Computed example of a mutant assay.
Amino acid sequence: MALSYTLREGLAGFRRAKLAAATSVVALAIALVLIGLFVLLGWQGQQVAELLRQRASEVEIFLDDDATAEASARVGDRLRSVAGVDSVRYVSHEEAAEIFREAFGEEADLYDDAQFLPASYRVRLGGDAASPDSLEAFAEVVAGWTAVDDVAYDRASVEAVERNVRTFSSVGLAVALLVVLAALLLVGNTVRLSIYARRMLIRTMKLVGATNAFIRRPFLIEGVIQGLAAGVVAGIVLWGLYGLFLRFIRSADASRAVVDWPGGTPLLAVAALIVLGLVLGFIASSVAVRRFIRQVSLS
């Protein structure tokens, strides 16, 4: 009986204040779309940052000119056994000379013989090992190995990538928190207006012995319904907007990196947005109801 009453009154409250409820749903849906876009773009930014970090964290290990083939091979084996190393590629004298000619074009002809370039290993590190401090520690250790002449890497680029990632993450988090706060206030204000419009009914219910918990439940259902409706609307809009963004990115010649939905399907993002709408609707209505029902006086 109590459950059926709660559901019936929650739906009835949603129907009574159609304009206020519709306004709240639209506003919350906009907030959820913004949150979803920030999260998805932030996720894409993390993927791009990881690619840039991997490229910037390439370490080139130059071998001694008189290093034997066996000594060079041992260096390669030791590098592959180091934790955090994603890839190891050997660059011979001949390949280094070819890379030199491609990089400098006609100016490379100034050198009669580019075989002065030493053989080397190009190592890419990933995860925590790609941080500036870890790269420096790795370079210092490898520089002391037998048959290793020098170790070089672009520390400035690695630090720039790390700095930009931190800035992007901080700004995105701050904006997302502001949007969430605005969404909570919108739903809470709508529920508060609904409580105020029915304050005489609430007073009557209190007079006949209804508990605050019994009175609260229909308003909580109303907030959850608003959150559910906003989540569904936001999920559909986000699906379309982010789908257009992905098509645009994939059509650009310069963007051949992996660009997709998290998990490879839009259903996860849409479902997460619907759940977030439900949670925000429940939290906002719960806070508003607990505060304003107590203010309804029996006198």
Rank of each mutant, 00 (worst) to 15 (best):
T6F: 12
T6N: 14
G10Y: 05
L11A: 10
A20T: 13
V25Y: 02
I30Y: 08
L32I: 08
V33S: 06
I35M: 13
F38I: 11
W43Q: 14
G45H: 07
V48L: 13
V48A: 11
A49D: 09
L52R: 09
S57K: 04
F62H: 09
F62C: 08
A69V: 14
A69Q: 11
R74A: 10
R74V: 08
D77K: 13
D77R: 14
V82C: 09
A83E: 14
G84T: 10
V85E: 09
S87L: 14
Y90Q: 14
V91W: 12
A96T: 15
A108P: 04
D112Q: 12
D113P: 05
Q115K: 14
Y121W: 04
G126P: 07
D128I: 07
A130L: 05
L135V: 06
A137G: 13
E140Y: 14
V142I: 09
W145M: 10
T146M: 15
T146V: 15
A147Q: 12
V148H: 12
D149Y: 13
A152L: 15
Y153F: 11
V158W: 03
T167Q: 10
A174W: 02
A174I: 05
L177T: 03
V180D: 02
A183R: 00
L186T: 01
G188L: 00
V191L: 00
L193Q: 01
Y196L: 14
R199I: 02
M200N: 15
L201Q: 12
L201K: 08
I202M: 06
V208W: 03
G209M: 07
G209T: 05
T211I: 06
T211P: 04
R217A: 08
P218N: 01
L220R: 01
I221L: 08
G223D: 00
V224K: 00
Q226K: 01
G227I: 00
A229C: 05
A230M: 00
A230D: 00
A230E: 00
G243E: 01
F245Y: 06
A252G: 06
A254H: 10
S255G: 09
R256E: 04
R256Q: 07
R256V: 10
A257C: 06
D260F: 03
P262R: 01
G263F: 02
G263K: 03
G277T: 08
V279D: 09
L280D: 07
I283P: 12
A284N: 08
S286K: 14
V287H: 12
R290F: 15
F292D: 13
